[in-house]
Nucleic acid binder design. Structure first.
Lengths: 343, 343
DNA sequence: GTGAAAGCGCTAACAA
DNA sequence: TTGTTAGCGCTTTCAC
């Protein structure tokens, strides 16, 4: 807090009026209290002169309301989360609320600390894209009366409101496409095990296989996180064992994984889709501009952020407290050139 | 602020001790004051039982310090800014500080509002990537004693500390490369006019031309913002007038512009670099995986965020108040296949 | 039309 | 070793 010292008190003192008068004027209810136009003008003037900035901290303490919403995101540098964060910020600002941002770094300990912190800051509500492994802390906070909405990821079993996308359906569709094109040995490069996202996508993959009478070969479900390196490494392994695993198509569960796979294929001179087919979760504006335009599952939904904010404010304003709301937005398939028909 | 009611007062009451005792225990200075182990345990226990969460608002008001830094970013959904924001959050957290996030949406009015807001919240310091057109509000705040650091963009004329990259040099290098490969009619697709970034990049372009005895043709400097659509539209125009403008190479000032250009070229069946050469500002992990791997100017510097935080804390802790610090990190050229030698 | 004063939850100087 | 109390800046009830 820098030195700026002006308060309503100091304004009142220099003008010889009371703090209540200044407070009223600063809050724009001057004429409602029939304070003389002269006084109002004088107050504004000295406020300017003294470089007065209202103290929201004091205001919040007094009002027991901070006009602030806390946001916990695993990684804002991920465009997907960043886009959601942006919408949340915008929508909150429209309602006169500000954002307290916390990165959880994909680390459950940091997530828990961040939650505690936001509670300490007495934010009016919390929106979070949880790591997705544990939720007792979130549930506790929510049960304790903290307005809370989950975005992007959720917990099937918990009584926690969320807005997310139906990744399982998306994954299912992608793999059905692969199967309909004749692929049987499909590798799945998964993301962070234990997250709802990963579970949904892998489940969609499995369901598509089963529904089409194919056996789920656990050794074909590989990888361990949503990063570029994971994609790169797993792709290299798959290529090396092509004679053994007979893989003809890969289902990548995330955009960074896909980029890693592409890099590996390029290094090994593996052509897409001639040598191997690829379909990926996550649509990006560069997807069609890659050396082979990639077929993707798009779960872009610009409304996720705004829906979450709306849900949160429902809770804050205690409209419809009856039951926890859940929204699952649909995904859709974008077909390009990365999948080859082999039958 | 949800209902949670426990305060140190209520803990004190239920235990029949004083608030100071509770305060001391909650702040971990219990034994320093030789409070009995029994009391300490009892306090922690009831705190737990009552679901006590410390009130940072009250604490801040009392201490006149919020342990909070404000961050104003034009567009958090831009990976470049998001990465910086992430580092800033991380580094601040390490120091026990939290982030108050404001999106300026590339709108100077919103930027000004955000600044005012952060002042009202009495943040201990501000880091901002300014829109880059006006800076009087920032300067005023800084002169008033608010610790402040600019990132990514800066004002040559203002006495404001910043950490940014030397985009002019990067642009210069890129265009010298083009020229050394025999290109003479080079189009420059610029970003938002008036921003330091754009100015730097366009200046680098001009300098390279001049230094090599080429005339700067203003009609070849086109475009108006850093978006995808701008790249797309301008590329289409350039192609349409190829017989007139004789353009053989394009210098794109940003990654989204480049993606737009690529899309346009693809639609028009323009080959890179056979039909036209392309070099772009901004390296991304997909740059080498595009249908033609793109030569880029990389200004990736993971240290921008952490340097900015370090600078800010210098100010907050009033170490070295003597002069405003400025850092310009170097860029470097990554050559790939998108530039053709024509002489 | 304006003011006095209580109190939001906390810390820390001073007392005991 | 623990307690009492003033006060951070603000809003708002009650009083005049």
């Amino acid at each position: 807090m820098p030195k700026n010292k002006a308060t309503i008190q100091s304004i009142a003192d220099t003008l010889g009026v009371s703090v209540s008068t200044v407070s009223r004027v600063m809050n724009g209810v001057g004429k409602k209290y029939r304070i003389s136009a002269k006084t109002i003008a004088a107050i504004h003037e000295t406020a300017d002169k003294l470089n007065y900035t209202p103290n929201n901290i004091a205001k919040s303490l007094r009002l027991k309301k901070t006009f602030t919403v806390g946001l916990i995101i695993p990684d804002i540098s991920n465009p997907w989360f960043a886009k959601i964060a942006m919408r949340i910020e915008e929508e909150s600002r429209k309602r006169g609320y500000n954002i307290f941002l916390c990165n959880s770094n994909g680390d459950i300990t940091v997530e828990k600390e961040s939650l505690k912190l936001l509670e300490n800051w007495k934010v009016d509500g919390i929106i979070t894209a949880p790591i997705g492994i544990e939720y007792s802390h979130l549930l506790k906070s929510y049960k304790n009366g903290m307005p809370l909405v989950l975005v992007d990821r959720f917990f099937e079993k918990a009584e926690l409101p969320y807005v997310s996308t139906n990744d399982e359906q998306g994954a299912f569709d992608a793999n059905e496409l692969l199967i309909s094109y004749g692929h049987v040995n499909i590798a799945c490069i998964q993301g962070l095990v234990g997250t709802s996202q990963n579970r949904q996508r892998v489940d969609g993959y499995k369901k598509a296989l089963k529904k089409n009478g194919l056996k789920v070969e656990e050794s074909l479900i590989v990888g361990s996180d949503f990063g570029y390196d994971n994609g790169y490494n797993e792709a290299k392994k798959i290529i090396k064992e092509l004679h053994k695993n007979k893989v003809t198509a890969i289902f990548s569960t995330g955009n960074q994984i896909t980029l890693g796979v592409l890099k590996a294929f390029k290094e090994e001179s593996i052509r897409i889709p001639e040598d191997i087919s690829l379909i990926s979760f996550d649509e990006n504006n560069y997807s069609e501009l890659l050396y082979t335009p990639i077929s993707t599952v798009s779960h872009v939904d610009n409304e996720i952020g705004s829906k979450a904010v709306a849900m949160l404010f429902n809770q804050i304003n205690e409209e419809e407290t009856e039951e926890v709301q859940r929204i699952l937005a649909p995904t859709h398939l974008i077909e390009r050139d990365s999948v080859r028909r082999i039958k």
